[in-house]
Design a protein around this nucleic acid. Structure first.
Lengths: 193, 193
DNA sequence: ACCTTTCTATAGCGATCGATACAGAAAACA
DNA sequence: TGTTTTCTGTATCGATCGCTATAGAAAGGT
């Protein structure tokens, strides 16, 4: 028996996610967010807590949506090689999709953080490390399956592909085309032992 | 016939450069800078103009100092291949030097900028594009010298190596070791045609 | 129609942002 | 030593930061 919310919480969260994606955590002010979401500060705080929790929720939504291609590729492809190749190719497509900001939110949204939001930077850093570990586990599978020679330095390979993906995100934010990123991905796959 | 500056302008600029390098342009406040440089705001403004000009001067100093290894490598090595390999190997060393902040200032100091400092972001973006062009010109030399087959997509190679370098910077800022970066560099060189 | 509850918008909180007005202090010249 | 000039620190400017107190508006239950 009470008044109900006048805005679509999910749509507002998606708008906030895109704002953080485009400009980063600290550079996106509450005023920017409320203007983009079409609501006033008290509505934002009532629905999402505070700026940090809104960001964390936006990151979670990103991981389940725009950024889920990576987890899907690693889970669905039969071999580590195919999984890595698909991650790279889908990243090339996703990072240059004109329907949303360029690059990867996890990689680029909390790079320049002051001391007060160092924890936000650390949060994304943790997700990046988790992605690298996921790559490595999948490459380890190929060693276990005999598709890669025993003794292959899978950690080095995973670090290499993580770096390539992060470079692709930076290139995309600098204006590289989908074709540019596909060529990076194709060249990076020639490294596979 | 007047009072002279009580602080070392060069040392203060180096301190500011390191602060920007560690936290980024917007996240480094005037209060942070004056505290690190050991001077008061009026002294900073008298010596360097304003925050943006101080940053631009810090970037110029970076390019002539910590970041000059890249220009040197491209100029001094006899072939494009050796030049690119040396850039990657020296980047691995430089990005993880414990004597200064990790990674590359040009790549990481102006990623999350608000609308008001978009020009700063654009400045570094331009330097990144110039670096990529310099890589390409050096790779073109190898095609002209017959070291690479005619018709080699040198732009794609340059974009690839630029992406790898940017990924190395991100990895270094995330805590990767010098050995990690050397392995990325070595793997990246196996792509060379 | 009334009451209760939760949403909404306006306005403003203290803190910090980049940048300065002001006055005192120090160095080179007379 | 006195004058001039520029540097120095304190204290503060208006604007913006993240966030919230307050009061009015809207929706469900009776």
């Amino acid at each position: 028996m009470a008044r109900q919310r006048a805005f679509d919480r999910d749509a507002a969260l998606d708008t906030a996610l895109r704002a953080f994606w485009a400009r980063g955590y600290e550079a996106t002010s509450i005023a920017d967010l409320t203007a983009a979401m079409g609501i006033s500060p008290p509505s934002l705080y009532a629905a999402f807590g505070d700026k940090r929790r809104l960001f964390e929720e936006a990151v979670a939504r990103y991981q389940e949506g725009y950024g889920a291609f990576s987890t899907r590729a690693l889970a669905e492809e039969p071999t580590g090689r195919q999984a890595v190749e698909r991650v790279l190719m889908e990243a090339a497509a996703e990072y240059t999709d004109p329907g949303h900001p360029a690059g990867c939110l996890i990689i680029s949204a909390a790079v320049n953080c002051g001391a007060e939001s160092a924890e936000v930077e650390e949060l994304l850093r943790g997700f990046r490390e988790a992605s690298k570990d996921a790559l490595r586990k999948r490459i380890d599978d190929d060693v276990a399956a005999g598709l890669l020679p025993a003794g292959t330095d899978t950690a080095a390979l995973a670090t290499y592909y993580a770096a390539v993906i992060q470079g692709m995100s930076t290139q995309a934010r600098d204006g590289a085309s989908r074709k540019d990123l596909r060529q990076i991905a194709a060249l990076a796959m020639t490294v596979w032992p």
